[in-house]
Amino acid sequence: MNILIDLVPDTVEIDGIDYKINTCFRISMMFELLMQDNSIPEDEKLKMALNLYYEEVPDNLNKAVEKILWFYKCGKEDDISNSNNTENANNNSKKADNIYSFGHDDEYIYSAFLDQYGIDLQDIEHLHWWKFKAMFKSLKDDNLISKIMGYRSITISSDMSDNDKKYYRKMKEIYALPDNRTQEEKENDFDNVLSSIF
């Protein structure tokens, strides 16, 4: 799909039937937050995701989930190859969550859209997810959320000056995202680090 050539979709085709899909940016934000929530069992996430996107849930659940992922990825099929379950969606969302979080960065994102596009995300009744994502990816560097994502993503390397290293470490600390792992996941990660050392 090409957002410049193709009309953004409001239905998905499953087994020869067109199903209406909820295209509002808020739904896909809620989906991303749902996938990142470690307190919800995977099977519950699946049910909740299907109910978020579909008024009428298709009988073919595997295809329905596949189409959710396709829609969430804005039609970029190469990004979701071999992704046909919520676990893969959860992993994709965790990767995306490394530099931003719709839950944690809501005020920064809200103000960036208002500043750059004149769009009040509170007042707008509907904005298609694909259009929202295109605008989100294109936020200018002078918006605070863009700077914050830059701080979170920068790799502190040995060729940086000591002042730069100190500055970026401080910025990473100030703008760090909360750790959403469960206690068990934290312990497993700690055990993995220890086993790699010894």
Rank of each mutant, 00 (worst) to 15 (best):
K20P: 02
K73C: 10
E56V: 14
D105C: 05
Y54L: 07
N85D: 15
Y100G: 06
K45L: 05
C74I: 05
K170T: 10
V12I: 06
S83L: 11
P41G: 06
S195G: 05
N85L: 01
E66M: 07
C74E: 10
L127F: 06
F25R: 04
T182M: 00
V57E: 01
N38R: 15
S146E: 05
D78T: 13
D79T: 12
N2P: 01
L7N: 13
V65L: 08
F25W: 10
I5S: 06
S158Y: 07
L194Q: 12
F25M: 02
Q116Y: 00
R169C: 01
Y53H: 10
A112L: 01
A89Y: 11
M149H: 03
E42L: 14
S138V: 07
K166F: 06
S83F: 13
N85Q: 06
I5H: 05
Q36E: 14
V57L: 00
I17H: 03
R181W: 01
Y19S: 03
L52D: 11
Y108G: 03
M1L: 07
I154W: 00
M171F: 01
T155Q: 06
D159Y: 12
A49P: 04
K20R: 15
N180K: 15
D43F: 12
V65Y: 03
K47E: 15
E87I: 13
F71P: 08
G118S: 10
Y167N: 11
S157G: 09
E187C: 00
M35Y: 07
N180W: 08
Q183M: 06
G150V: 02
I68T: 07
D142I: 11
I119F: 00
D59H: 09
F198G: 13
L50P: 05
N85E: 08
P178Y: 04
D78E: 14
K147M: 14
A176S: 11
K137Y: 11
P178E: 10
F136E: 12
H126C: 12
N91A: 14
L121Y: 08
Y167M: 10
N88Y: 12
M30Q: 15
I119W: 01
P58V: 08
D189H: 09
N91R: 14
M149F: 00
A64Q: 09
E55Q: 12
C24R: 10
I145Y: 02
Y167F: 14
S158K: 13
M171T: 08
E184L: 04
Y54M: 06
D179M: 00
Q36K: 14
P9T: 09
Y167E: 12
Y108P: 02
N180V: 14
C24V: 06
M1C: 07
S195V: 11
P41E: 13
I148Y: 02
A49C: 05
I80C: 04
G16D: 06
P41V: 12
D142M: 07
N180S: 10
E87M: 12
V65W: 00
Y108V: 04
I80P: 01
A49Y: 03
K172P: 00
E173Y: 03
L34V: 08
L144Y: 09
K172R: 04
